[in-house]
């Protein structure tokens, strides 16, 4: 019997305690176990993408191409309309759009991550969090394809490195951490209240116009307060400025760190409370 299983199982059998009292610990270890199962959700995330573009010539690069056309044409039109320099405006727009897409798709697909995984959640013993990680992984794969646009923009318009580029690494990690807590919170609330996905979708449309993507705050020295109070502005800023080779804006970094410190504990608390009930909600 043991021979079939393989060597690692020759060790002592794993022990597990499932009880009403240790549910909080189980919720915490579920988040960690989900991460450890990266092979599982990564494979399924990659499979999602592969499946969507099966038998198409360009495959997932259709994503890049369609966003590339969007950024290219919009960059041209807007720079003409608003009398801006195309080589300044296009990189700004490209990065804004790429990261806005990553942020909002993690949140919007996060909403349905537990709901659509109902069949798995009810029938397959695997960490609950893995379903959400799969959504994050899928969107990171898409984002990586979209970053080809940045590469093109860099070669065409920026073509010089700066020390500030290095800030992209911590900036991106902070950006992603925020996207993850918002997405996971959306996932939990959506499993319980089915109106939440609709509410979030409408809300994101509004936020899109308030967020400096097509326009820059530098064009509006006197601006309404809601611009600076918009967390999405700061989240975009901590990845956009480094990629543009601009000096960091301290306020944006502090804001991004601040919302992480507030939002993450709330999400963890919600997850702890909802963990045992999500299988019944979906």
């Amino acid at each position: 019997m043991l021979k079939v299983i393989g060597e690692k199982k020759l060790l002592e059998s794993p022990k597990k305690l499932i009880s009403a009292e240790n549910l909080p610990q189980m919720a915490a270890s579920d988040l960690v176990d989900g991460l450890k199962n990266y092979q599982l959700w990564w494979v399924f995330a990659a499979h999602d993408i592969k499946q969507r573009f099966r038998r198409s010539l360009l495959g997932p690069f259709w994503l890049t191409l369609s966003m590339g056309i969007f950024v290219g044409s919009l960059g041209f039109i807007m720079s003409q309309l608003f009398n801006q320099e195309i080589k300044v405006f296009t990189p700004y727009l490209a990065i804004g759009i790429i990261f806005w897409a990553l942020l909002t798709s993690i949140i919007m697909e996060g909403c349905t991550s537990f709901i659509t995984a109902e069949g798995y959640i009810k029938n397959v013993p695997m960490p609950l969090s893995a379903h959400f990680y799969q959504v994050v992984a899928r969107n990171i794969i898409i984002w990586a394809h979209n970053m080809v646009i940045y590469l093109v923009v860099f070669i065409l318009f920026i073509h010089s490195f700066s020390v500030y580029n290095l800030l992209f690494i911590p900036g991106f990690l902070l950006f992603l951490a925020n996207a993850i807590w918002i997405g996971l919170m959306a996932a939990i609330l959506s499993a319980r209240y089915r109106d939440i996905p609709q509410v979030i979708t409408s809300f994101i449309q509004v936020v899109f116009f308030v967020t400096p993507i097509f326009w820059s705050v530098t064009n509006f020295p006197k601006r309404p307060a809601f611009v600076d109070w918009n967390p999405c502005y700061h989240l975009l800023e901590i990845v956009r400025a480094p990629l543009l080779g601009q000096a960091p804006n301290n306020l944006s970094w502090l804001a991004a760190l601040g919302i992480l410190c507030v939002g993450l504990p709330i999400t963890l608390y919600l997850y702890r409370r909802a963990y045992a009930r999500i299988p019944y909600w979906v």
Binding site: P14, K16, L17, I18, S19, A20, Q51, N123, V124, P125
Partner: peptide
């Protein structure tokens, strides 16, 4: 299998667990 959680009481499990509830889960 650890899918539903207890409201009261406990389960102690020693050993690796394999589950067959939906025989085609995961298949596409």
């Amino acid at each position: 299998a650890g899918i539903y959680k207890p409201t009261e009481g406990s389960i102690e499990i020693e050993g690796t667990v394999g589950t067959l509830i939906d025989p085609s889960a995961g298949m596409d």
